[in-house]
Design a protein around this nucleic acid. Structure first.
Lengths: 232, 232
DNA sequence: ATGTGTGAATCGCTTCACAGCT
DNA sequence: AGCTGTGAAGCGATTCACACAT
């Protein structure tokens, strides 16, 4: 069942704002950071040096308190009375999201979606490097697809380890998704972005995010019919 | 600000479960309905006739209370002591989400993502029919792409009206996204699924949903680095 | 004077728990 | 006896409001 948790007044941390206490950050906050990151890049391109939470809020369509709270989980990035330096803030977010490093990515499934993603410019710009493409179709294996040679999915374990792939984008049929996810999880993949319309059961150390365009269309359809807009 | 709402013990509705009171339904609920719909299709394919909220919950990875609550916003679809009839439930969800009707859809942008989506089988299966593709590139206009002739974006207003397009999928560069969204909104489009990494400002009567694979990868990256899994 | 950072208040979604229907 | 449907409780996320830093 559930371990009962005793709630008592929390022990006050001295006054040293040295480290920043560990807090559980919600998925929504992370997603918003990712949006802020894009907006900051645009502001920087326009030579904007500083931005206040109020200004950023208007651009993002959220409240300024939301923005300040989001940042507060990770540190004190602003200056009171001044706002945030766009460059600094961008760098802070990059570190938080892990965009300041190089991620080796493999795409599994050389179909429509898989090949569309291979040269998606935004990936490389943010540190995600597509190094491999896999398929099970003999007609595709060995062929060159946008500068990458399609590899045989049968050798995926050794190849993933050889090139130290940490992230896999799965764009394969639902029926084989679970099996493939198990194989690549054993091979050491740490995260999966799954386009197959199928919930994956993977070991704890693997993070999965589900992507499903058809579901997005269906949600859109609902809100068209029920003009209850203004939700995320 | 906010209209204060007086909370008093609800007047018991006689015994006629006739209509169902109007409630604001959250986006999360709608998204889950879309997932349930997929699972129900699978169960039906396996000739399962009935399913309890408990069983469905296990398949979906949510609680059974969540499932019952989600349905309760829309009606009483189950039978006490018995569970839900898979066919009936599927049909109810289809009606709620608007999947029992025919939606005319246009794809704007005949690039990688646009063309990948044209023949995405799941769309048609759920009532979303891709009728048109647009691009601004003279090299693409007039060419046939997966059975559709690429139309000139310059004539998009009249063409959208002629074929009664209600939903547009935008897969075009961020810089032109806002302008195109305004044109198609005026032309009568009711919903936009936007792949351009750019927040759109559209009239109230148009519903927008944002899709951004790069942002999903960034969120994935964060959670790989901070093994705080188990979020949606 | 201005705008951040953050406890406290509020809001809204999820879970509990059980009355009531089959 | 079994399982739904749903008020109420619980809890996490958002917003308020203001002390405090610049």
């Amino acid at each position: 069942m559930k371990a009962s948790k005793i709630m008592k007044t929390k022990k006050k941390t001295k006054k040293a704002p040295a480290k920043k206490k560990e807090v559980r950050v919600s998925g929504s906050t992370v997603k918003r950071l990712s949006k802020y990151y894009r907006t900051l890049n645009e502001l920087i391109k326009e030579d904007v040096e500083h931005v206040s939470s109020e200004e950023l809020a208007k651009l993002e369509g959220v409240t300024s308190a939301q923005i300040r709270k989001d940042f507060s989980f990770f540190g004190n990035f602003g200056r009171r009375g001044l706002g945030y330096n766009t460059h600094d803030l961008k760098n802070h977010i990059a570190i938080i999201l892990g965009l300041n490093r190089h991620w080796n990515v493999a795409i599994i499934g050389a179909g429509n979606i898989g090949s569309a993603l291979i040269d998606y410019a935004e990936f490389k710009a943010h540190g995600f490097h597509i190094k491999q493409v896999y398929d099970s179709d003999p007609a595709k294996i060995g062929k060159t697809l946008k500068s990458l040679v399609v590899k045989d999915i049968n050798v995926i374990e050794s190849e993933i380890q050889r090139e130290n792939i940490e992230i896999a984008i799965m764009a394969i049929p639902a029926q084989v998704a679970q099996a493939v996810s198990e194989r690549i999880s054993k091979a050491g993949v740490k995260g999966i972005l799954n386009f197959a319309p199928k919930r994956l059961h993977v070991p704890n150390h693997v993070v999965v995010r589900q992507e499903n365009t058809a579901m997005e269309l269906e949600t859109l359809s609902y809100f068209i019919m029920n003009q209850k807009d203004h939700l995320k």
